[in-house]
Simulated scan of single mutants.
Amino acid sequence: MNFRRFKIGYRTLKTAVGASIAMLIAMFLNLDYYSSAFILTVLCIQPTKRKSVRAVYSRIIASIIGVGFAFVFFEGISYHPLVFGLILILFIPTLVSLKFQDGFVSSVVILLHLFDSKELTWSLLWNEAQLMAVGFGVALLVNIYMPSIEKDLKSFRLEIESLYSKIFHEIAFYLRNGDSDWDGKELVEASEVIEKGKALAYQDVENHLNRRQNLYYLYFDMREQQFEIIERVLPKITALPVNISHCYIVADFMEELADHVHSGNTANKFISKLDEVKEEFAKMPLPKDHENFLAMAALYQFIEEMDQYLHIKRSFVGFNMKKKTASKES
């Protein structure tokens, strides 16, 4: 039987400390149902700052709507368990239709307090308002600090560049030798790294309330577009019927490209080199038979796809934002 390694995460620690502080504050203020501040805090500590703000907003609105239902049904009909059930039958669809369903649990906590009191008074409403202020406020405060993920994002960036380099080296090897024992594992790894990198970059966006996009997210999105091209071109190479002289020209280009998949190179440089490859192709004699024709056609399609690969990179903003003309990778 496999067990996961025991680990206390940063969010777990924040939740425990924040919820305890919230309950202590509620106790200090002599609030009724002070332990509920603990629950309200737990519900609002989310993985990112933006999610926490949305969670607090949703729970405040849901609680206000819940108080309205309590006034109509508890005061209008009776403080009875069946009436409470009737409230939930109508309350849940209302929250869902208004898109505040995330606030259901916290609003039920408030409803339970109102039900338990058997009377809706201003002092009780003030007590509930203070409970929400303490619980939600502490949750927002402990979520102000989020650990930096810049190091992890950079690690993913370097990893994907290394994988692309290996893939291009394998393509060059195949073009020169017409055979390879490559198992293609870098393709699977590249796909996983891109997915993880995009998810982490999106989390970084969510941790900045005034930011709508993240440069790393754009980077991994760009690499994902390039990856689609890499997946398309590989069958064109592995399906070559014969090994023609054009293969060695493309192999030289791919070898050089493989050695420069990093932040210090411009895509323009390799677009120019690819144009030189096209010019060299144009000067070469026409194919003598059908197999040579198919091989040449496949290589032409390959270099056109690689041209698109480079243009995708050229459109990327770049990481050096201090310069107007940011560096662009290949």
Results as ranks from 00 to 15, higher is better:
Q225V: 03
I60D: 01
G85F: 04
I194F: 07
R54D: 14
L215R: 02
S117I: 01
Q226A: 07
N210F: 14
K269R: 14
H290P: 01
L90V: 02
K328V: 10
V105K: 06
R223M: 10
M306Q: 09
T325A: 05
F281S: 15
A70F: 00
Q203I: 11
F220Y: 07
M296I: 05
A139P: 07
G137P: 08
N2L: 13
E189C: 08
Y34V: 03
L257D: 15
R314Y: 05
V53N: 11
E186N: 12
V261D: 13
I110V: 15
P147H: 00
A297T: 10
S330P: 07
S117Q: 11
D204E: 14
K14A: 02
F3E: 12
F253M: 14
K166F: 00
V277W: 10
F293K: 06
S123K: 07
N243W: 08
Y79H: 08
L153W: 03
E189N: 11
S20C: 09
I21C: 06
F302Y: 13
L257M: 15
H260G: 04
L257V: 15
P235L: 12
Y309Q: 05
F253D: 14
L274Q: 09
K196C: 12
F227V: 05
L98D: 04
A199F: 11
T94M: 06
E159C: 07
N320E: 06
A239D: 14
R54I: 08
K269Q: 14
M146S: 01
E291V: 02
V317S: 01
N30I: 01
I144W: 01
K14G: 03
K323R: 06
S180P: 11
F71W: 00
H311V: 06
M254Q: 15
I312Q: 05
L95V: 06
A297V: 11
T121K: 04
L200H: 11
K313M: 08
Q46Y: 01
E304C: 10
G197W: 08
A55W: 06
K7Y: 15
L200V: 12
F316Q: 02
R223W: 03
E224I: 04
H208D: 06
Y216Q: 00
E228Q: 10
F302A: 13
Q225D: 14
E329M: 09
H290T: 08
L82P: 03
G66W: 01
M222N: 12
E161C: 09
N210E: 09
L90K: 00
D181C: 04
K288C: 04
I61M: 09
H290M: 10
I167R: 00
G18W: 06
T15N: 12
V242P: 15
V138I: 13
D307C: 07
I237M: 15
I92L: 12
L158W: 05
I65K: 02
L86F: 06
I237N: 11
Q301E: 15
D289T: 07
S58H: 10
G66E: 03
G197L: 12
D289Y: 05
G103W: 11
H262M: 10
I60A: 03
